[in-house]
Design a protein around this nucleic acid. Structure first.
Lengths: 194, 194, 194, 194
DNA sequence: TATGAATGAGTATTCATTCAT
DNA sequence: GATGAATGAATACTCATTCAT
């Protein structure tokens, strides 16, 4: 029974085009945000308009696919960091990585900002994973005394999102990113007060 | 000498319309972001479409006027705070006020995020003012020992923007805002280390 | 409060355009049926595309407006006929008029054919009126002995629709229409059998 | 000498596919009319898109093949009826059969309605046959006194088409069909007038 | 040979902006 | 001075058809 397309691996050329489309979409979405036009994406991918629609039924579906791809990379990093020897280092390194990696990725940042707001979104499961992974890093860092005990997941995620959003929207350079993160990290660390 | 309209004060009804339009635009822009339509703004203002164009030559001009209006309010607060007795309190209160006041104001937050990037934007002078006012608050707080000396204007503005963006995009509730700001503020304060 | 557009009479130019659009739509819909394109209608009306949308929010709305216009004419005729002196004549003349008038009006004929099937359609009330008016003519003709008593509304409407559809789709000439209606009319009249 | 494919009988599996496609097309065309999509037909046939194009060069060709198939069945019935003992019965039964059989077959009905209009259509020969067969039934019924002598082929075909069109478009139920046909048949029968 | 991926022309609809009333 | 009607360019999306696999 032909035309089922479920679970079947993509044909070689289709896979090639899928990648070209995702790459172009990533570029265009990064530049124009969700105002990006499908025609422009097709043009940059060197592909017919309908070719996009064959693999991604709507603009939103494409948008989401781009984001999922990126989140997966963050997730990989978080998982890897979870087994690092120094839990404090692992936590702060991951925080920094998230901000660095997403900067310039409007679509990705938007997605992070939206996560948690709209749990029925198709990207939700991936975000849950990311949340869980971040939770692990946080708790281990707290257990090791590298992060204050009274800090909760909610504000950590909020702060990560905040830094990602601002770094992206304001095109923070490396120095500004470092200085801003330093402030936040100092706020997260245990403090000695007289 | 009719038709000159430059510098001339607006007729009473024109002024009334201008306010109605700005109010409607604020509402609509807050809800729909820059995807807002001029027709919808006109409808909500109870005014003809061309009436908007008489005062604001393009959609962007209107958009900007709305933002300028809002920034002026922040500025007022900053100026007032500049003379407060406790400089540390003045600084942190202003920071909090900025985040609280802009939450839910997509247009305003976007404008803050864009400021500094596009110095030729019409809003620039106002942002310079805001920057200057914030600078005064910061330096006074540092002089009073309420904020660390090595913190610079750049990262303070960056952090304010970051918190505004995230609070708006993620619809932070009061508790989350408080907890997140607490972390940042702790990072800004002088710390005792062994 | 501007932009309400409800109940207010159209501006002179708008009314002119409305008529041009309806006329063009009638022509195009008659030729291409509901496969007609809005662009073609705009072209034939000598009007911008969006001008159509100002008055008719969707293709279907325009389609319907064309039909309503035509049905109104049938209805006028039926009402006029209701007071004719010879009830038999009134009935058969109306039947003939309906077929003649609708021939070449794909949209109108389609609408008649759809009526009764989809009572929630916007055109429904008008069709109810037409049905009622036809009912009056039928009953008066039966009372006068010009139409068999055992004939019901259902089949009369069915036959009218049938003749309209065929006359339109097959481009019946006058002679064919007359000969076909003669057969149907003979079938409707009381008959003497040995 | 491969590639000639002219006149060569179809391979067994090709023949199987042809039937699957025709069946699916009949179903889809009946439901969606000429707005049916080739992709949907392929899907329902459980066949690749290009497989359809191998046997039917265009959508219209497939459309036509479906219709020819159906008309053939009508024709078979007409031929069979031509030898019935009661010519009147044969004629009226065939008329009824035509209406019953075509109801729900948008494509078929359309084809009947178009026949005679476009003699260069590929279906024309088949329609000529149908016309001829109907002519035989009519003349025999007239000779037997079951149908009025002054009725011509033209209006008989017109009436058949009319009833088919309306029955299909309005989804006549059995009762309505019977009552409507009764009127038409009474109009076709010889009548006694004082 | 059968498949389905790719294509470009086509569709309805929306929007910022201009101009006759 | 204010209105809203008109406009054309732009957008997401669909479809019949062709061609590489």
């Amino acid at each position: 029974m032909p035309e089922s397309t479920v679970g079947r691996p993509l044909r070689a050329d289709a896979q090639r085009n899928r990648l070209k489309v995702l790459a172009a979409a990533e570029r265009v979405l990064a530049k124009d945000g969700s105002a990006a036009s499908m025609r422009e994406i097709a043009r940059q991918a060197g592909v017919g308009l309908a070719t996009i629609y064959r693999q991604f039924p709507t603009k939103e579906a494409l948008y989401e696919a781009v984001v999922v791809e990126r989140v997966r990379r963050l997730l990989d990093h978080a998982h890897a960091a979870a087994h690092a020897t120094d839990p404090g280092d692992a936590f702060f390194t991951f925080f920094t990585f998230a901000v660095t990696e997403t900067t310039g990725e409007k679509a990705l940042v938007d997605s992070l900002a939206v996560a948690g707001l709209d749990p029925k979104a198709g990207t939700a499961p991936m975000h849950r994973d990311l949340e869980k992974a971040t939770g692990v890093l946080l708790r281990r860092a707290q257990a090791a005394g590298a992060v204050r005990a009274e800090v909760g997941m909610a504000e950590v995620l909020a702060l990560i999102t905040a830094m990602c959003l601002a770094a992206d929207r304001q095109h923070w350079d490396e120095q500004l990113r470092t200085r801003s993160l330093t402030v936040v990290f100092d706020g997260l660390r245990p403090q000695l007060r007289p």
